[in-house]
Design a protein around this nucleic acid. Structure first.
Lengths: 215, 215
DNA sequence: GAGCGTTCGTGATAGGTTCTAACTAACGAC
DNA sequence: GTCGTTAGTTAGAACCTATCACGAACGCTC
């Protein structure tokens, strides 16, 4: 991650400190969640005092935005890698699950409860559509049924989000279903809503993944 | 909501102030989210100064817990009312959506990103299983297939969460699917992940609801 | 109605946060 | 070697949660 090709020594040093700040920020987030992230505490861990950190990030929001960007990039990279290795929809589903379980708070940073005032930068929406492109590729690999459903024609008529991708109506629908259904199981599992219920969330997830890939 | 049957005038007054505090808390949450909730600001809105509020709620967590409890109760009440009016699965799905759109932050308070340290009180899990009971009732109303899938037998073997309910394996599966799939669409919509994509989230939601009810 | 214990609201205070301002010290280009 | 840019410091404003000690009001009992 990050901008490693820095010309001047000053820029190289700056980029290095920024990475160290983000490293400690991730550790804090992983243990206490994004809302408990303290710039003050990070600065002390690094070894510098409070306000010095504001030389590197204008404010708390900018740091969190950068972390969200990194999280998005990390998912996009994982997805692209699996796709290039010839993954089908089921493989992508399990790659998503592994990525989420690897750091639940990172998942929530991207797909969790949004801060009401927060507006995602254009940057992240671009990465999101890149992820969607990989997904649409995998969906077009499946066979398509003859006549599209009313919902599928609706999606085909409002396909701004799929932009230049040549996916058909049923592929659009499948991609969306992939996203929503897997997010449904995953987010409830990570939020702990299945704890104490007894069954194995992985089996439920796999069943949903195979239902999407098969149908 | 709340304990209105208070004996002494003191208790009645106390309950009244608690309700007023919660009212202002909901307004703050609706506009700025739960993380921005400020006990200080609420106290000033009520007309009393800072620490006085701690006579009514031990701390921030207790207030939020109380709000979560109320949110759960509100959903359970809405669900039970629809069920007693003879609602089927599709009706319950739309009741859920209306409840969520009515106050998105209330939905996130229950089903959104959890605070890592937070442990839900036994109380709320009881209400959750009450909601699940209504759902299982609606699921058993459908017809059941002959041979259960491997997942369905797994769910039937780990049916602690369904406790005393006589739902069969396929009903257990259907209830879980109802929950996860609708939450998937709903939470992504409320979090704003569909904004700018062009299509109508309501149609996607309805399609999922009917797929669950029909199958 | 008078006394008295409980409860309520207050201001003061401790310790935490984000973030700004002013100043100093170090770095690096010329 | 000079000098502008940048990094880090301390001080401080404006918030926040939460505790404590005090005075005042309430309402139950006698």
């Amino acid at each position: 991650m990050g901008e490693l090709e820095a010309r001047t020594p000053r820029e190289r040093y700056r980029a290095q400190i920024r990475e160290e700040i983000k490293k400690h920020a991730w550790e804090q987030i992983a243990t206490a969640g994004a809302s408990a992230l303290s710039l003050n505490a990070i600065a002390k861990q690094i070894g510098m005092s409070g306000p010095a950190l504001y030389r590197y990030f204008a404010n708390r929001d900018e740091l969190i935005t950068e972390l969200i960007r990194d999280a998005y990039r990390s998912l996009a990279t994982a997805f692209r890698a699996r796709a290039e290795a010839g993954a089908d929809l089921s493989d992508l589903a399990h790659a998503l699950r592994r990525w989420a379980l690897d750091d639940p708070q990172r998942y929530f940073l991207v797909y969790g409860t949004p801060v009401p005032g927060y507006q995602a930068p254009e940057d992240t929406t671009r990465i999101a559509s890149e992820i969607m492109a990989v997904l649409l590729d995998a969906c077009t690999a499946q066979q398509t049924p003859a006549t599209p459903s009313p919902l599928q024609t609706h999606l085909d008529e409002h396909r701004d989000w799929a932009a230049p991708h040549p996916a058909g109506p049923s592929a659009l629908h499948r991609a969306l279903t992939f996203w929503t259904r897997l997010h449904g199981v995953l987010s409830l599992e990570l939020a702990g809503h299945f704890t104490g219920m007894g069954f194995d969330p992985a089996r439920l997830y796999t069943a949903e993944a195979e239902a999407i890939a098969g149908h």
